[in-house]
Amino acid sequence: MRKPPTSTALLRYHTALLLRSQRWLPPVLVYAALVAVGAQPGDPVLDSLGYTSAALLPVAAWLTRISATQEPPAARHVTASAAGPGRAHLAALLTASGCAAALGTAGSALVVAMSGWWNTSHEVRIAPLPMVLAALLAVAVCVLLGTAVGALCTWPLLRSPGWSVSLTALLALLAIVTTGSPARETVWALITGSRTGTTPVLLLPLAGAALLAVAAGATVCGVCSRRG
């Protein structure tokens, strides 16, 4: 029996494209370098988690840029005709965010394993369960925002590679430092929590990041059948 064009087939295709292309290597190496430099064994765990999740945001944006542009135009047309342009592009974005989430989870797991489960002044013990929850929330927020930034700063909205790279870098930086940005709030809560010894489990930034990611995804997927 024939099934309708399945999203899993598209995800599988885009994931295979991304993993086989080896274009994932530079962002993964950059993330590994940032984690290695910023999180030392024995450092306060919440500090290190805040730092590594902030590092994840530009990496997620970079992976999104790669995934959204890895098909040459003719191949993209073939896929778009078979599955619909919006759906095909969405699969590319979801592939990138899935890979970034896997990378961020692995990085955070490493940080949790090697850091000291204490606050900055080494007086308050950090409980493991809220810590793991806070780490996963921070990964989710930074992946969602990073994907949104990457999606907005590449095809179909921006086609010039130069502008695309500069704007991705700028917006990723702004997403980390601007007050009110879900990523900034999450990272800040981890760092201040590290001082006081209270682990922040914040759902509001996650909701905000999800909303922004859905809005960005809907915009770019809606536009891609209008941009050739």
Binding site: K3, P4, T6, L17, S21, P72, A74
Partner: peptide
Amino acid sequence: AYVPERFPSALPFTAIGYLTHLGRVHG
């Protein structure tokens, strides 16, 4: 289904690998 004029070869698949992926995308 669509056949473009010049199909790019800059995809990291074997011929059969690409076709199987596209066949799945086609349902």
